[in-house]
Design a protein around this nucleic acid. Structure first.
Lengths: 250, 250
DNA sequence: CGTTTCCTTGACTTAACTCAAGAGGAGTGG
DNA sequence: CCACTCCTCTTGAGTTAAGTCAAGGAAACG
């Protein structure tokens, strides 16, 4: 029985535009398909593979990464439930990086023809898909700023802020708390520092009373303070204008 | 007399697919429009502005950047002639960053309806536009890897490699030489280091006999060696498969 | 209950930054 | 044509943020 749960892509696209019943049906059809389960720390797709379709994360956390010849690894993006990984990525002949599962992940693979079914169906739907792609591009750019200009503490704080805002946008924050099921080594590979130094910076954030984070449970004790440390502004996530109809169920 | 010069967007898209006469005409029409000249170090568009259209760089080097509250600045991407800056960026209400001119720049601003004219005209054309957007996203991700995992020397070498390959792809390399009209401060803001340290690293690359770079003229004395230092692989630029018909006028 | 993974801490090292000053060019105006 | 400024590049000396190495502890796992 597919899709008894709310379609996460519909939820996502409704952040950007108001979708008609017909549009929702099209998206539902596009997403209808077997869910694939990936175990923690396994890959959804590997560098060098020919892309088959576009993964839509239904549950769990995924991440894109690249490994250098000498083993250094960098996480290039983190994908949360509802995230579409690179719509149209299937156009390229070969993956230039890998996508892995940080936690156990369930996802649906949208085939090119199902993508085509959505793009070009109506203008608002196309627009919403673009919007999603654009915010992902903006997020990549923000990570460049983060890595290039912020020091270790700011960088870590910024990542926590981003994750917090993104999780909140998909309803995964309760109060000031959410799950952040990353290891400190994951954070290190994301922020370009060593695990040891991540540890020290996490403690610093804890010591300043900004965050609690233990066993994967995260709490923003002082969100404003955390944003200040990070010089974080959620503008690049383009949530505000988008959030004009949070009542997805019309 | 518009477009006596070859249309740079046609040239770009022909890297990805073979375009029909009709498709070329559509692209020509989309690009037909007044060229805008921007003086060196001025902005094409600023953070906070409402995007008007999509800049297509005709001549010169442009760059996206973001400035933090305290003045630190990061260059997030570099745009060379033929580059389309974020097709569909006009969908977003507000720019979350600025685009400036590194050199004197001439560009055409494609209005949303001209973009729409191209997207959806035919499948190959749409595909080519997507391809272009995808390689730009891949480049952003590679910059993340660069900033996160490579040390100063590798990082600088990597940037030189990327610029060299990209310039070559648009016919701006002669032999092993090309213009790289950046200051060392520009490189610093791109690679997330200080100008002083950029200087030292440039000298190191010179000292190893890998590059010559003086007065904006760059020469890859030992391209292979430079790629080795950088652990550079041009895969992410997705030039190879694309380059199957370099004879654009065929 | 043993093993593995992850977190934590300390002591030491190093890559990169900071500050400061000088040199070389390019452009400008007297 | 020279003096001036401005900008970029260069170099040196001292400092600091972050990395390295190593070991112990805590928690999770089978």
């Amino acid at each position: 029985m597919p899709n008894t749960a709310p379609n996460p892509l519909v939820a996502r696209l409704c952040r950007y535009v108001r979708l008609s019943e017909a549009e929702r049906t099209v998206v539902d059809k596009a997403v209808a398909g077997p869910e694939i389960a990936v175990r923690q720390r396994r890959d959804l797709i590997r560098e060098g593979d020919r892309p088959r379709g576009v993964p839509l994360i239904v549950e769990g956390w995924a991440f894109r990464y690249k490994t250098l010849e000498d083993g250094r690894r960098q996480i290039m993006s983190i994908h949360l439930p509802g995230d579409l990984c690179d719509i149209h990525g299937y156009i390229l002949d070969e993956m230039d990086h890998s996508i892995g599962a940080l936690t156990p992940v369930r996802y649906v693979e949208l085939s090119p023809d199902r993508i085509d079914m959505m793009t070009g169906y109506t203008i608002p739907l196309t627009r919403a898909l673009w919007w999603d792609a654009l915010t992902k591009a903006a997020t990549s750019r923000e990570w460049i700023v983060n890595l290039g200009q912020r020091d270790a503490l700011e960088r870590l704080a910024h990542l926590f802020c981003e994750l917090f805002f993104r999780l909140r946008a998909v309803g995964l924050v309760a109060g000031h708390s959410c799950d952040i099921p990353l290891t400190q080594t994951d954070l290190a590979e994301t922020t370009g520092m060593t695990p040891v130094h991540v540890n020290r910076m996490v403690q610093e954030l804890r010591g300043r009373g900004l965050i609690r984070w233990k066993g994967g449970e995260f709490e923003a004790l002082d969100l404003e303070g955390l944003c200040d440390v990070a010089m974080f502004s959620p503008d690049y996530l383009h949530l505000d204008q988008a959030g004009r109809s949070p009542d997805h169920d019309g």
